[in-house]
């Protein structure tokens, strides 16, 4: 064991790479996947607010797409139907955007969702203090912990956002079918729908990462000795 000298700062070159502490990316993914699987119910709750917020976002934007599809037919009957179901269509409009009110409600719901994620992830970090501390005692660096939490939240976020966006879009289409009949589906632009869904997924994914940032930093900065002091 005499050959195991602590690497001096000067020798951190290529010859001592194997002596540094590492956690391969593949292994990090494996650990975070396992962590999600074991705590599946817990992850589900963490992700639930995201699913709801993203499905709302996707519902609103797909509904707008449907309305635009109907409007593009230039039929006065459909225009009337739109106005009847609550859209503000002025006579000169050829396309519809989301109204400021809608935008505010969506932003608000996303904001509430981020706060929910921060809260849930902080709880998760507290629950796992001991695990984090143990890993640090085994030689884990701050960034391993950070990476594990970000990966976990990223995967949860992607999964949750996908489910949410799909559900929102589907619900919006069903809603349109009931309100306007099959014409709603035949006139709409599927590219727009896809675009709306994908952007909703993207927003959800980013929000999930944003929400976990602070809890992950708290976890990563923790001193191992503090973790050991906490009673189970």
């Amino acid at each position: 064991m005499k050959d195991k000298q602590i690497p001096a700062r000067a020798t951190k070159g290529s010859d001592s790479v194997d002596r540094l502490v590492v956690l391969p990316f593949k292994k990090s993914v494996e650990i975070s996947l396992k962590s999600i699987r074991v705590r599946f119910f817990r992850s589900l709750i963490t992700t639930m607010s995201l699913v709801l917020a993203v499905s709302f976002l996707s519902f609103v934007s797909v509904s707008t797409d449907v309305a635009n599809g109907l409007l593009s037919t230039q039929e006065p009957r459909l225009r009337q139907a739109l106005i009847r179901s609550g859209y503000d269509v002025r006579p000169e409009d050829t396309t519809l955007g989301s109204t400021p009110k809608q935008r505010w409600i969506v932003i608000l719901s996303l904001l509430v969702c981020v706060v929910g994620i921060v809260n849930a992830q902080l709880m998760a970090v507290t629950e796992r203090f001991r695990e984090i501390g143990t890993m640090k005692c085994l030689g884990a660096l701050d960034r391993f912990i950070l990476r594990l939490f970000l990966l976990e939240a990223g995967m949860e976020g992607l999964g949750g956002a996908c489910v949410g966006a799909m559900a929102g879009a589907l619900f919006s289409l069903i809603n349109a079918l009931f309100s306007f009949g099959t014409v709603a589906v035949t006139t709409l632009s599927w590219t727009d729908i896809a675009l709306s869904t994908v952007s909703a997924i993207g927003v959800g994914f980013l929000l999930s990462l944003l929400g976990v940032m602070y809890p992950a930093i708290v976890a990563a900065r923790m001193q191992p000795v503090e973790a050991m002091r906490i009673e189970q």
Binding site: K4, I6, R19, V21, S35, E131, G133, K136, C137, G139
Partner: peptide, 23 residues
């Protein structure tokens, strides 16, 4: 980094509460 290296290679820890990673 060097502290992490030390904990990883030089020292093995055993705790009163075992601290096996549950998952």
């Amino acid at each position: 980094y060097e502290l992490a290296w030390l904990r990883c290679r030089k020292i093995g820890y055993i705790f009163q509460t075992f601290n096996i990673i549950q998952v």
